[in-house]
Structure formats: C-alpha cells, structure tokens
Design a protein around this nucleic acid. Structure first.
Lengths: 197, 197
DNA sequence: ACCTGAACACCGTTCAAGT
DNA sequence: ACCTGAACACCGTTCAAGT
C-alpha cells in the first residue's frame, strides 16, 4: 500500500527522538521507509515543511488542560501572591518543556517551525492567550510569549547539550535543570505581571 | 606567504556577515582564500572550533565600558527605581544585541560557541558578573545570565528571520524590534532583582 | 496517483604525498 | 611547516520515466 504523509512524519519524529537532528536526513528517512529519496517529495514539499510538521507533532500531545478562558476581566490577586491564571501559564510552560526535553534537538526544530509557521504550533498561541488572561496587555503579549518561549527553548537546548557534552568531555557551567527553569520562569512572570507594566 | 589562522577566521566572519551561515562552508572558505580545503585543517581542528572563534570575534569588539566592579556590597536603590549596576547590565545587553543584529545567523553561531566553550566569550561572562553586582545572588547568577542570553539571542534571531521572511513571503507575527527587546529585558530584570528573590 | 533511477550541485573530514 | 590532490561518505532537490 501507498506511503502516507503521516508515516513520513512519524518516522521523522522517531529518527529525531532516537538519533537527533544530524541523523534526520531525507535519505536516511527514505531508507527507513524503504523507498527512494524522491518518493518523499511527493508527500512533502521540502525538508523545512517536514520539520514544521515534526515540531507540531512534538507539541501536539499537550492537552488543553483546565484554566479556561477568563480573559477580559483583570486577574485577581490572591493571598499567596499568585493567581489561577498565572498558574495556568506556569503549567503550560512546564508541559511544553517536558514534551521537548526527551527529544534531542527539539528546541532547534521548534524554533525553526515557530519562525516559519507560527500559527502551526497551537500550544504556543495558547501560551500567549494565557498570558493575556493573566494580565499582560494585548500589545505586549506577543513580546511576553517570545520571552517565555526563548526561555523554554534555551532551557531545553542547554539541558540537552549539557547531557551530550558531559558524556564526552565534562566541561564547566551551571546545571540548568528544572530548578533553573522555574526560577527564570517565576522571575520573568514577576516582571511581566508587575503593576507598573 | 603562508596562510594564518587569523586570515581564516577573518574570511569566515566576512562570509557570515555577507551571505549567512548556509554559505559559510569549509569549501567556500577555501575558495575565497585561494587554497584547497585540506589546507584549512592545518590551521583549525574542525568547523565547530572555527565557529567558536567566529563568535568570539563577533563579540570581541564590545568594550569593557564604565560601571566597574562594585561587587560584594549590595546595590543601593535609587529614586528612579534603578541603580547604576542595573544600568550597566542593560547597557551591556544592548551592546551585545547591537553587535549581533547586523550579522546573519549570528545568534546561532554564538549559541553554539556558548555551549561548546562558555569561557571563550568574554562579554557573556562579564554579563554574569554585572548581574551579581546588580544584586543577583551568586548561586542564581548563572541562571540569570542564561535567561538574559536566551532573550538576547532569541531577539536577534527573530529580528533577522523576520527580515528575511518579509523579503520573501510577508507573514504575520509581532514586530519584535528593539522596543520588544527592552520591554523583555526590563521585565526580566525587575523579576530577577526583586527583593523576594 | 505514486514511485524509481539517476543525476546535479553540493557538504565535512582525512591523509598520503609533495615542497 | 605548510599545502595539494584525491578520496570517502555523505547531503537536499529535481525530474524524466515507469507503473
């Protein structure tokens, strides 16, 4: 039976997950699927388009989660210094990070997809909506979204590079695990949600 | 006369600046220098090492600037809500961004260099020192440095991708210029320098 | 509609051999 | 010490031709 685009994307994700981006070539992909390279180009325009699909699949498993749309009215401050809307942002950010951390070079792939087709990555647009619900004014929510996304992707990349470098050479630098991520996330949110802004 | 490592790095920077990372191949570099490819490998271990040197040169032009070492004692709060130490951080971040923005794909190159040889990029270690001087506790300054660096590199990359995509296709998304950068920088610093942290 | 075979124009890296 | 020539093992993309 005929090859499908889904098979192509599935296999691409599998190669990325198991061997990293350097091994995710069109030729390797074709070999894995037992077809000639040219066959792939009937299902996919080019490699970039394929990587956008890969990124979408990586983030596709993230559920909509609770914390529904309470946009419009300003977020109420709670006694603990946080709000449910802010907690929803934190929760989504952690989910995105958790989805990417186990997949090598996923940060690079997501960044490419984000610049090529921002609308294709639903969880990232949701992040922006949640930021607005948490109190970031709409004229700044795009900036806020980018700040958080850079933090997430930077954290994922550093974490993975750390892991591979440790296995090879063992050089310096701070740990940059989930603790560092939460610290930066909280700091950024504190700043972005400050009453002055 | 003989080729030098400086010539190799200089020419690599020139290619990056004029044509981008996709055109910066060892073969193209050799052609530009009128030598065979193999000759490059006498002066440079491999392409990654070369790119570390390229990144160092891109950031090398940034002067030490004022705001000397006032580390140790806590930063005094001023009436304007800012301190000279904080201003020094902002100033350096803007200098780094300004140095990278005109060079295509420079964010990618710097990120690679930063993970490969963090100590090779002096302005980035200085950024960490300035953050400590501004009040970030040493156990968090590595995290803070990474948060700011991700913001800088993300801003540079988005700005450049924007420019190239606009020339081709014209798709959506926020502007993400220097205004966005300063907004995120101020927000992040507000959070990181908050008394609670 | 879907795929093969083969080509085009590239890569990074190595290394014997030359000067 | 410094470089050439040539090879090895790859790339992404295109496209006539087959079924």
């Amino acid at each position: 039976m005929a090859l499908t685009r889904e098979q192509v994307v599935d296999t691409a994700v599998a190669i990325l997950r198991d061997f990293g981006l350097a091994d995710l070539s069109m030729r390797r992909l074709a070999r894995e699927l037992d077809v000639q390279v040219g066959a792939l180009y009937w299902h996919v325009k080019n490699k970039q388009e394929l990587l956008v699909d890969v990124a979408a699949r990586l983030l596709g498993g993230i559920p909509a989660s609770g914390a529904g749309p309470a946009a419009g009215r300003p977020a109420p401050r709670e006694e603990g210094g946080t709000t449910p809307e802010r907690a929803a942002v934190v929760h989504l950010a952690l989910r995105i990070r958790a989805a990417l951390v186990p997949v090598p070079d996923s940060a690079e792939v997501v960044q490419l997809a984000q610049t090529l087709q921002p609308a294709a990555l639903e969880p990232l647009t949701r992040l922006r909506e949640l930021l607005e619900a948490a109190g970031v004014p709409p004229r700044h929510s795009g900036w806020a979204q980018h700040l958080l996304l850079n933090h997430i992707l930077g954290s994922v990349a550093a974490h993975q590079d750390r892991a591979t470098l440790d296995a090879v050479d063992a050089i310096g630098g701070p740990e940059l695990g989930e603790d560092a991520f939460r610290w930066g996330l909280d700091a950024a949110l504190d700043g972005m949600l400050a009453p002055s802004r």
